[in-house]
Amino acid sequence: MPESVAKVALRDQLLTARRRRPLSEVGAAARAIAAVLAGTEEVRRAATVACYVSVGSEPGTTALLDRLADAGKRVLLPVLRRDNDLDWALYAGQSSLAPAGRGLLEPVGPTLGVDAVAGADVVLVPGLAVSRDGMRLGRGGGSYDRALSRVPVGTFTCVLLYDDEVLDAVPAEPHDRPVSAAATPGGLLRMR
Rank of each mutant, 00 (worst) to 15 (best):
E41F: 00
V53P: 02
G141E: 13
F156D: 12
A92H: 10
A9M: 03
G39C: 05
G27T: 14
T16D: 15
I33H: 11
A120G: 06
G140K: 08
S54F: 01
D87E: 07
P174H: 09
T155N: 04
V8L: 12
T40G: 04
T157S: 13
G134C: 04
R20S: 15
G60F: 05
D66E: 15
V179D: 12
V122H: 08
T16L: 05
L188P: 02
L64T: 08
P22H: 14
A28V: 03
D121W: 01
G60S: 13
Y162I: 10
T184Q: 11
G187Q: 08
L76C: 05
P126Y: 08
C158G: 08
D168Q: 06
A169R: 13
I33Y: 07
S4G: 02
A89T: 05
T62A: 15
T157G: 06
A71T: 12
D87N: 03
V179R: 10
R18I: 09
G154R: 05
R44W: 03
D66F: 00
D12N: 13
V79N: 05
R31Q: 15
G56L: 09
L124E: 07
R136T: 12
P78A: 07
D115V: 01
A182P: 07
A32T: 08
S54W: 01
L68Q: 13
S95E: 15
L104E: 12
P185D: 15
D87F: 01
A38F: 02
V53K: 06
A38L: 12
P2M: 12
A9K: 11
R45A: 15
R146M: 06
L64Q: 13
L189P: 00
S24H: 14
D168C: 00
G93N: 12
V114S: 04
V43C: 06
A172E: 13
